[in-house]
Each structure stands twice: as C-alpha cells, then as structure tokens.
C-alpha cells in the first residue's frame, strides 16, 4: 500500500503556503525550512535568519496566530497553516498603511538599534501580549494556580516572556519599555471598544 504510493518516496513536492492572507504555490525540496522558503522563494525577507538553530528568535513569525520559529519548521510541514510574517502585521484593508501598535511602540521607544532582531522581536511581542491577556502563566509568574489573581505584565514578566528573542545590540531596556507600552495601549483600546459596544 505504501510502496505503490508515488508520494511515498518523493523528496520534493508542490505545496501551497498561506502567508499574510495570500496563497503561494511553490515546489519545494522537503529540506527547505519555512524561513528559507519565505526569504528565498517568496521574497519575504522581513523574517531574519540569525542562528538557524532555534537559539536566537530572529526568525520568529506567527503560525495559526502563535509565535513560532521558522528556522526549525519545514516549509512542507507548514502547508495548510496560516502564516503571518512581519510584512503582514500592519493594518490591512481599511487600516491599510497603519502600523501595528507594537510596531508603533518600537518606533516611539527606540526598541532597536541595528534592527536585525526587530521583526522577530515584534512578532514575538504581539504574541506575548495575547498570551498574557489569555491568562497564560510564565516562569516569572509567582503562582501558576488558575485561581490565583492575574499577574500584571511587569518588566520582569516581559523579560521572561521575551527571552527567546536575543538582541546582539543589547536594546533590551527599550524593547521592554516598548512592549509594556503597547500592552497598556492595547488594554486601554480594548476597554474603549468594550464601552463603545455597550
């Protein structure tokens, strides 16, 4: 049964990647990582390659809304998943051209120096704010018990949650400030939206 199946021994194949709301058909050698497929085949070079071994976070993007490392993900294994890269986080449609609040905060608070780690930092931070809002604990959370009062997104929490993103320039202090600001601004916006809806 398996041997008669031609795909069983193929080492390359045609795939469709869903990136930033668009479908891209391409043929990939199975060895191609998602990172290389984006950068070298789809010209989406915003996602950066730092270590290529899962150790630096430069290649962070969102897969089905969750932050992931594209250097340890095979492109063929990403087929069927919704991929959002740094090119896709800014406003779409009516909000076209409007930066994502986290991007805006990185600009305002100088959350970068050379900028190489920044796309990964921003994608990671977007998810960090959502994970925290969803009540996910972190290693900096004192009490993981689900009944414990929610912990605020303190600088200590941000540092722990962002620890998978290294910055060779050492822009950490302003990165933490930018993330804290974006989280606060988001909370204020959410409260306003809720009020408007009520």
């Amino acid at each position: 049964m398996i041997t008669s199946d031609p795909t069983a021994s193929q080492t390359a194949g045609a795939i469709i990647l869903h990136v930033n709301g668009e479908k891209h058909a391409l043929t990939v050698d199975h060895r191609t990582t998602l990172l290389d497929a984006l950068r070298e085949r789809l010209d989406l070079t915003g996602t950066k390659k730092g270590c290529d071994h899962g150790q630096c976070g430069a290649c962070t993007l969102l897969v089905d809304g969750r932050r992931s490392l594209s250097c340890l993900q095979l492109a063929v294994a990403a087929e069927g998943r919704e991929i959002t890269t740094i090119e896709g986080v800014a406003g779409q449609g009516a909000d076209e051209g409007e930066l994502h609040p986290v991007q805006q905060a990185f600009l305002e608070f100088d959350g970068f120096q050379c900028g190489y780690c920044t796309p990964g930092q921003i994608c990671s931070a977007i998810a960090v704010i959502e994970e925290h809002a969803a009540g996910w604990p972190s290693a900096a959370t004192g009490d993981v018990h689900p009944g414990a009062p929610p912990e605020p997104l303190t600088p200590e929490e941000i540092r722990e949650r962002m620890s998978g993103n290294l910055c060779r320039c050492g822009a950490y202090t302003s990165i933490v400030r930018a993330v804290a600001h974006a989280a606060e601004a988001g909370a204020v916006r959410d409260a306003r939206d809720e009020e408007a809806a009520a």
Partner: peptide
C-alpha cells in the same frame, strides 16, 4: 500543557517545569 487549568491546579510543578524550558516560540511548537 503549561497553560492548562487542570495541570496548573493539580500538577503545578509540571506547568512550572515546562515554562522553565526553552522559549515561548519553542514551547508553541
């Protein structure tokens, strides 16, 4: 695993151990 309420309620050390490993990105994968 680390975020699951029953894991956090009954097996706090398991949630803490997972959260102490790797990074948010890696734990998602």
């Amino acid at each position: 695993l680390a975020a699951h309420p029953e894991v956090r309620r009954r097996y706090a050390a398991l949630s803490q151990a997972v959260l102490a490993g790797a990074s948010g990105q890696l734990r998602n994968m």
